[in-house]
């Protein structure tokens, strides 16, 4: 990401942010979102993956007002302004949790587990949350 690690400045790397935890129970989902927004300043090739309980992060209809937390669902809709448009949701994770393949807070690509594995293996850097 910088000249310090020996890379040529300006080289664009593929970054994947892997989200595997449900929102609100832990700080992971919100922290990941903030890191993603900050990383947008570095003009890298950013993708977001939502699998396992992480699929709950991008479902429409989350309302944490009753547990006294800020609803950060609307912030996923700002990702487009940050030129982050590659959002992948794993189909098997949805199915395992009895969730439909629509009804997301933001446009996403629903992919199979095999496709998700391939997406992961194509990255230069994988950041897990």
């Amino acid at each position: 990401m910088s000249a310090e690690d020996g890379d040529t400045p300006g080289v664009i790397k593929r970054f994947l942010f892997v989200n595997r935890k449900a929102p609100y129970g832990t700080i992971y989902a919100l922290e990941a979102l903030e890191v993603v927004l900050i990383s947008a300043a570095f003009d890298q090739d950013v993708s977001l993956a939502f699998l396992d309980d992480g699929v709950y992060q991008v479902l429409a209809g989350n309302d944490p007002s009753g547990i006294g937390m800020k609803n950060f669902s609307p912030t996923y809709r700002a990702l487009d302004d940050y030129d982050i448009t590659k959002l992948y949701v794993e189909r098997e994770s949805l199915t395992e949790r009895g969730l439909p393949e629509d009804g997301f807070v933001v446009p996403v690509n629903v992919v199979s587990r095999a496709e998700m594995a391939a997406i992961m293996s194509q990255q230069d850097v994988v950041l897990s949350f």
Binding site: V18, R20, K21, Y28, Q123, S128
Partner: peptide
């Protein structure tokens, strides 16, 4: 390996 994925 070209990348590491941590299953936290």
């Amino acid at each position: 390996h070209d990348a590491v994925q941590s299953w936290l």
